[in-house]
């Protein structure tokens, strides 16, 4: 059984599996993240085991387990094991991590102020997050889960796992980021093609540095669309973020207070655009105004 430990932002994971090659891929993808975690107390254990003893060798297929129930993950083929571990890690955070409000959103910072990008899958959130990540002015904080502290002026804490690029966003980023920061191309996954992109080193080095939210945006990408901006009301922003959170309800009044404080102090916009250039321009304009 091979074991690998990872630290992403505040959380440490221990991954175990008899499929050595899968964990070797994980190690390679995370080689620029903090190392030497053997003496640490870790937050979550995740296992990737053969579906049955036979399936370790014959049409190898992996099922995942962890401290918090992973019954919802269907077994994956061994060649997609890396993706399976990523999903398992995300689910441990979504189900078991209660030290921050976990929001399904991307985030990035300039100095110590942050933008929070929320939206359903397919809205363009991930692509926009990837675009910002390799812009010199922005410090990438996370592409999928944003961690909001339980305070009256909540801070965003980085959770900069490798960015999960899907389909069209893969070539978009291949022209913008160095080749040695990409993981292997995974084809025919449930989400089509997937390729991981390790964020710039600065994002990893500063993954313990929180930032104060300054702007919330909710992107809508539609090819060819004219750029448009609409201010969201406080309550609309509350409902959006609250429903995008995996754990706010479980956090009770502390979660409610922090979320209310965020939506009362930070302006929120719904933006539509038809190209990457327009998206970046809108974000810059709104950031200036905010």
């Amino acid at each position: 059984m091979k074991r690998v430990r990872l630290r992403i932002g505040p959380a440490i994971f221990e991954l175990r599996s008899p499929f050595r090659s899968v964990l070797t891929e994980v190690e390679a993808l995370y080689r620029r993240y903090p190392q030497n975690l053997d003496g640490e107390i870790f937050d979550f254990s995740v296992t990737g085991l053969p579906v049955s003893p036979w399936r370790r060798f014959l049409r190898p297929s992996i099922m995942f387990g962890g401290d918090f129930s992973l019954a919802d993950i269907v077994p994956v083929e061994k060649r997609l094991g890396l993706l399976g571990f990523e999903m398992a890690i995300n689910l441990q955070m979504a189900l078991g991590y209660l030290r921050h409000i976990v929001v399904h959103a991307a985030s990035a910072a300039k100095d110590d102020e942050a933008i929070l990008i929320t939206g359903e899958s397919g809205s363009g959130k991930s692509t926009l997050s990837a675009l910002l990540s390799y812009q010199a002015r922005w410090r990438h904080m996370g592409d999928e889960l944003a961690l909001l502290s339980l305070e009256t002026r909540p801070l965003l804490h980085p959770y900069p796992r490798p960015i999960s690029l899907k389909n069209e966003s893969i070539p978009v980023m291949e022209s913008r980021a160095p080749e040695d920061r990409f993981g292997p191309l995974l084809t025919d996954t449930v989400k089509g093609d997937v390729r991981h992109l390790v964020p710039p080193q600065r994002a990893i080095e500063q993954m313990d540095r929180p930032a104060l939210p300054k702007l919330v945006i909710c992107p809508h990408f539609e090819a060819g669309r004219e750029p448009a901006v609409r201010r969201m009301t406080e309550s609309e922003c509350y409902v959006r973020l609250s429903t995008a959170s995996t754990n706010q309800l479980r956090l009770g009044e502390r979660g409610f207070d922090a979320m209310v404080s965020l939506v009362k102090t930070v302006p929120a916009y719904d933006i539509s655009y038809g190209s990457s250039e327009d998206a970046l321009k809108l974000v810059d304009e709104l950031w200036q105004q905010a």
Partner: peptide, 22 residues
């Protein structure tokens, strides 16, 4: 119960049930 009037709508949070009602 915590009543929180926001621009747009009012939220009511029940501390025990953990539910927030719009």
């Amino acid at each position: 119960v915590r009543i929180e009037p926001l621009a747009g709508l009012t939220l009511a949070h029940q501390r025990l049930s953990g539910e927030t009602h719009v």
